[in-house]
Amino acid sequence: MHPLRLVPDCLVPDCGEPAATGALVALCADHLALAADSAAASGCEDVLPSPCPACASRLGVRYPSGWLCAQCEWRHGEQPDADLPPPRVDVVYYLRFDERFKIGTTANLRQRLAAIRHHELVALERGDRLRERMRHAQFARTRHAGTEWFAPSPELAAHLASLRAGVDDPWAQLARWRSEAAALRG
């Protein structure tokens, strides 16, 4: 190799090939292609060309094969079947009002929460009345008699922490569940 060479060698150890012409990083053509493939496979977060039809999010992940909604993973460009009603997703919700927690269930969370005075939607889990009754029995020791409201307890706090693990926003979680349900029904 000549010491006055103007084109740098590839940065990959033991490669020895010259860097690709015009490359922003000193990589040979083969290693530059590998790096590009690797970057494309991991996707690139960006604003969707239009809001997601499943959850209305604007954030997407761009792959070589197309866009996915970053919120619910709906494939951009696919439209939900307008002839079908929105999928039913039953959830058990956990609300906080002052120092009390309500455990309830609904298939229409926004409408249900509008009817209940609360300070915070703490967590969600998929489930219907059977799951709700199971949670009522699980935390019966701290239940306010004749209601669906519960006093704080270490057991309830641990359960809520497990439901919240990895979930930044319960509404986004619900949007994802709805999108999954819509995709599964075809």
Rank of each mutant, 00 (worst) to 15 (best):
P49D: 03
G166A: 09
S42T: 11
C69G: 03
S179H: 08
A20I: 07
P85W: 09
R129N: 15
D98N: 15
M134W: 15
E148Y: 06
P85H: 04
V25T: 15
A26S: 00
A175H: 12
R96T: 08
W67D: 05
E17K: 14
C28K: 13
Q71T: 09
R58I: 15
L163N: 08
P154E: 06
V91Q: 10
Q71K: 03
D128C: 07
H2F: 09
W177D: 08
L113F: 10
C52N: 10
L84N: 00
P152C: 04
L109S: 06
E155T: 10
C55E: 07
G60K: 05
R131K: 02
A172Q: 13
H119R: 14
P8E: 11
V7G: 05
A33N: 13
C15G: 03
S50R: 12
D9W: 09
Q173D: 00
A165F: 01
R110G: 00
A35D: 06
D128L: 11
L59M: 02
P13I: 13
G77P: 15
L48A: 05
V122T: 04
W149K: 02
C52Q: 03
W74Y: 12
N108V: 14
H76N: 06
L32Q: 13
H159F: 03
E78R: 05
W171R: 12
V47M: 08
C15E: 04
Q71V: 10
T147G: 02
L163K: 11
L156H: 02
V122K: 01
E180K: 14
M134E: 11
A145Q: 12
E45I: 04
A40E: 09
G146K: 09
R133D: 11
C10D: 06
Y93H: 05
D14K: 11
S50V: 04
D169A: 00
L27C: 10
L160Y: 12
D168Q: 02
Q71R: 13
V167H: 00
